[in-house]
């Protein structure tokens, strides 16, 4: 590792010293392409975030890809219903690694105001891993930008080897997540136990 002080000194002299890891992560975090995937109310705020006033393009994320194959980030923008949940998991499976998920808004986190609904999934993290949760109903565009910056920090901090490396560098990592079936009364299974352990309440 290069000494941080030395690095700054060299930088002043016009010499750029970096590590492969830093360069690699800088590249990854500066061009996160989200999938063009709107579910409900939050999708409108997501669109507003990309428009002139909030301008998500400043964060390298202006290119919304309609195809999951070309996207790095899935923004779950709205209520996931039980009718839609298998499709969401399938779309996530179709995305190439490295892939990230932002759960935008109360509905995507837990079902939100519609939690009691018979057709509402109580949080998308029951089936797929979520990297950043943003509360709000809907979250303001600033909140979505905050989530982006949080995700960028997370990517920056990922080492390329060893513990905590991104999934595409880990041959043993789970690549495909089981798609729930639509049963006669409910989704089967009702959650993916490997992704979502039953929450423990400590009081």
């Amino acid at each position: 590792m290069v000494d941080q002080q030395l690095k700054i000194e060299l930088g002043k002299q016009g010499v750029l010293v970096t590590t492969i890891e830093e360069l690699y992560n800088w590249g990854r975090r500066s061009s996160i392409w989200p999938m063009q995937f709107g579910l409900a109310c939050c999708a409108i705020e997501m669109i507003a975030t990309t428009m002139a006033r909030y301008d998500l393009a400043r964060f390298g994320a202006e290119v919304f890809r309609p195809s999951p194959r070309q996207a790095d980030l899935m923004i779950i923008s709205g209520t996931v219903t039980k009718k839609m949940a298998p499709q969401v998991v399938r779309l996530y499976n179709q995305m190439a690694e490295p892939r990230y998920v932002i759960a935008m808004g109360a509905c995507a986190i837990s079902g939100g105001p519609f939690k009691q609904g018979y057709n509402v999934l109580k949080g998308i993290d029951r089936y797929i891993p979520v990297d950043v949760h943003i509360p709000g109903c809907p979250p303001r565009p600033e909140a979505l930008i905050q989530a982006f910056m949080t995700l960028q920090k997370k990517i920056d901090a990922q080492p390329l080897t060893g513990e905590g490396r991104p999934r595409h560098l880990d041959a043993a990592a789970q690549g495909e997540f089981p798609v729930p079936e639509q049963g006669e009364h409910d989704l089967e299974p009702t959650s993916n136990k490997g992704v979502w352990p039953v929450p423990v309440v400590i009081r």
Binding site: L39, A40, G78, T79, T81, K83, M84, Q87, F114, Q116, G117, Y118, N119, V120
Partner: peptide, 14 residues
């Protein structure tokens, strides 16, 4: 239809 059926009417009756 139904991919965003959030049971508004059922919730409102409760």
């Amino acid at each position: 239809f139904g991919y965003l059926h959030r049971n508004h009417e059922k919730i409102a009756e409760g």
